[in-house]
């Protein structure tokens, strides 16, 4: 919280110059989006990547400036097979990471060589050999992570209360969980398979989208937001990724702070324009999600880049 406040202060001057009502698009000039443009870009994301949906969220938290049925975007049950720290070791070994903005030592990682873009079918079905190697050498433990701090105390209760005749289910047609374990190449790997609900809200102050993460552990119990930081690139954990109230959902969630989003998007747009590509505003979220992937490299949400990002001026 304190760090996020500091960051907020540091960039406030820039941000204030960018705020104010807009009648024309500041997309290319500032890398920001108007509310109407956010809806257009969101509609396009939902249509091209159908694992994303619009949702209306808590009725009491609805923003009047957004349509009731298009308050925010969400994709659920996104796998996260390993902790971001182990992937960073990969990058370093490969010498593969590139900063696109390092002037103030707070740059965003560029998205070169992300493992998620080199999926082959085999790799998607099972973690690769590479993963297994990391599993063996990496000592990061998946902390017993759900909110059930009192569960251990509760287990004796359960045994005390459980009627042994109450729940006998000997059913040969039920696949036992040991079978599922046998499908996985490594027990440890199961502990690492978290899932995430990734949501995108519109931040009116910064005039950019904002990404939120809700994590679940391997038994699909809610992860404490602090543990979500294990799945954030370590350059960003606690610095640009903070834990705050979600604008449409209850509770605290990890979020990529949007204070630099406009500036980073502007840089990406400039690079595209220098290549003769005229970026179109409805593609904003694809570019944005590509950049967010550098912050949360192991959370494998969908965004496709298989089509033109804009109209080429060539």
């Amino acid at each position: 919280m304190v760090l996020s406040q500091k960051i907020h202060e540091a960039f406030k001057g820039t941000v204030e110059r960018m705020t104010g009502p807009r009648t024309v698009s500041a997309f290319k000039e500032k890398g920001v989006l108007s509310i109407a443009e956010f809806i257009i870009a969101g509609d396009n994301l939902v249509s091209k990547c159908p694992t994303w949906s619009w949702e209306s969220g808590e009725p009491s938290k609805r923003k009047s400036y957004l349509p009731n049925d298009k308050q925010y975007l969400i994709t659920r049950n996104v796998p996260c097979l390993r902790r971001a720290a182990s992937v960073e070791e990969d990058y370093e070994a490969a010498g593969g990471e590139v900063l696109i903005d390092n002037e103030d030592n707070d740059g965003w990682l560029a998205t070169h060589g992300k493992p998620k873009e080199t999926n082959s079918d085999d790799e998607e079905n099972f973690p690769s050999m590479e993963t297994l190697e990391i599993t063996k050498t990496n000592t990061i433990q998946s902390i017993s992570s759900y909110f059930g701090g009192e569960e251990e105390e509760d287990i004796p209760d359960m045994l005390e209360y459980e009627d042994p005749d109450n729940l006998i289910e000997t059913d040969p047609a039920t696949l036992q969980s040991t079978y599922i374990v046998a499908q996985e190449p490594n027990d440890d790997n199961i502990l690492r398979t978290r899932t995430y609900d990734v949501s995108i809200t519109y931040d009116k102050y910064y005039q950019t989208p904002r990404v939120w993460l809700t994590g679940y552990d391997e038994s699909r119990m809610l992860l404490r937001p602090e543990l979500v930081l294990e799945d954030v690139s370590q350059d960003h954990a606690r610095k640009t990724v903070t834990i705050e109230d979600h604008p449409h959902l209850p509770g605290k969630h990890a979020s990529v702070h949007p204070c630099r989003h406009g500036a980073v998007m502007k840089k990406i747009i400039d690079v595209l324009m220098a290549r003769g590509v005229e970026p179109e505003v409805d593609k904003y979220l694809f570019l944005f999600l590509k950049f967010v992937a550098s912050v949360i490299p192991t959370i494998e949400y969908d965004y496709t880049m298989d089509f033109d990002l804009g109209s080429s001026s060539h």
Partner: peptide, 12 residues
């Protein structure tokens, strides 16, 4: 043999 369904409960 059928793989059992798993539950997930959102904080909300």
């Amino acid at each position: 043999q059928f793989a059992p369904l798993q539950s997930l409960v959102d904080e909300g």
